[in-house]
Amino acid sequence: MDKGFFKQFERKTGVEMDEVFALARAIQYADFSSEKQVRKIVQKVSKVAKRKVSPQLEEQIVQSILKDGKSLDLSKIERMMR
């Protein structure tokens, strides 16, 4: 992809592309049946999104992902973090 696109993305979101790629790798290789890994991913998403997630909301998100099994519905997580 075009470096200009990445720079524009970084300016608009305030998130460095390295962080986005690291998060994508973590999600790609994660074991979504492992509560520990799911919790780490939720915390990474929160950090990258610059959104505080209360312990209660983190627990809700983690349990929702664990319940749904191997699939990860990012739009569902996004709605929960709003």
Rank of each mutant, 00 (worst) to 15 (best):
M1K: 13
M1Y: 11
F5R: 04
F6S: 04
F6P: 02
K7L: 09
Q8S: 04
T13N: 11
T13S: 14
T13H: 03
G14A: 06
G14Q: 09
V15P: 06
E16W: 02
E16K: 13
D18S: 11
D18L: 03
E19I: 00
E19M: 01
V20E: 01
F21D: 08
F21P: 02
A22N: 00
A22L: 12
L23G: 00
A24E: 12
R25L: 13
R25T: 03
A26P: 02
A26S: 12
Q28I: 04
A30K: 13
D31R: 12
S33A: 04
S34D: 13
E35I: 04
E35K: 15
K36T: 04
Q37D: 10
Q37Y: 03
V38T: 15
V38L: 06
K40G: 08
K40M: 11
Q43N: 09
Q43K: 14
K44A: 13
V45C: 10
V45L: 15
V45I: 15
S46K: 09
V48W: 01
V48G: 00
V48K: 00
V48H: 03
A49Y: 01
A49C: 09
R51W: 00
K52H: 13
K52F: 14
V53I: 08
V53D: 01
V53A: 05
Q56K: 13
Q56G: 08
Q56Y: 11
Q56S: 14
L57G: 06
E58T: 02
E59G: 12
Q60V: 15
I61F: 13
I61D: 04
V62G: 09
V62C: 10
S64T: 10
S64D: 10
S64M: 14
I65R: 09
I65N: 01
L66D: 10
D68R: 15
K70R: 15
K70V: 09
S71V: 15
D73Q: 11
L74C: 05
K76G: 12
M80N: 09
M81E: 00
M81I: 06
M81C: 03
M81S: 00
M81P: 00
R82Q: 07
R82W: 02
